[in-house]
Design a protein around this nucleic acid. Structure first.
Lengths: 134, 134
DNA sequence: GGGCCTGGTATCCGATCGGATACCGGCCTA
DNA sequence: TAGGCCGGTATCCGATCGGATACCAGGCCC
């Protein structure tokens, strides 16, 4: 599927994700907490475990393993052990996984388009609940 | 926003949702467990609490209240208490909530389009794990 | 006044999620 | 042979999710 794994694939930007993403306002979820970020990381080509941990700042091995296993079980990501010289474990999107990027993009776009409304609604709700309680 | 609440609005089909929807295979979530179903129920117009409980077979008052409150806080659903003669509590989609139906439809469509692949991937994963373990 | 229906709340409980921490075996290199 | 990186696993813990059950206040109807 991917001929030669990673000829000169640029390394992942350690800051590709906003560390203070206000995700609680976003009404969509794709997989578990880290899944959408993992999918993004794999968009450019196969990556190894330790490579994924860089932009996913703060993720523990356990969480990353768990997320990857779930994506694997769903058929969205494939795990392969490469022999020498590229030696290591590589994770790559399957066709199905790549297809998932479409809806993911759509969800992101919708959120961006309605960001102000989401903020407003959230603040209004906070005010209203402050009126009623406390 | 809605002139006269519910003139001859057809009542909800108690069987509008498949009781054995295999949702664990679906990689998307919109809000909490019941949120997408609630949104669907409100698609046709404002509904009262007890009306919503019909197609959402088995939902408890607590869960429905919780789900509705969350949707309210997010600005997707509005709660209004109607005086006589329509007397009662009505829940309706806001503009933002109605907008949410777009991405929701898209997610449903994607899932339908890739249903066979999702099933296959899931069964293959089950086989593979059976090979490795037990 | 004694039912009902409506629209909830209060409490408890088990399951799951996700982070913190510690540990580990295989391999490469110095 | 010692230390490092790589790719994890094992254990514990607190927070959250979601169901079960019980209860309740207000209004209408007889």
């Amino acid at each position: 599927m991917n001929e030669r794994p990673r000829e000169e694939l640029p390394s992942l930007d350690p800051e590709m994700f906003d560390p203070v993403c206000p995700s609680p306002l976003v009404p969509f979820r794709v997989g578990d907490k880290w899944a959408p970020l993992v999918l993004r990381c794999l968009e450019g080509g196969p990556r190894r475990f330790s490579e994924l941990k860089v932009p996913l700042r703060g993720i523990t091995s356990k969480s990353l393993t768990h997320s990857l296993r779930a994506l694997e079980r769903g058929g969205f990501v494939a795990r392969t052990e490469e022999p020498l010289p590229e030696h290591g474990v590589y994770y790559a999107l399957t066709a199905l996984g790549r297809g998932l990027l479409g809806p993911l993009d759509a969800a992101c776009a919708w959120t961006r388009d309605h960001w102000d409304e989401l903020i407003d609604a959230h603040e209004e709700a906070a005010l209203a609940s402050a009126d009623r309680g406390v």
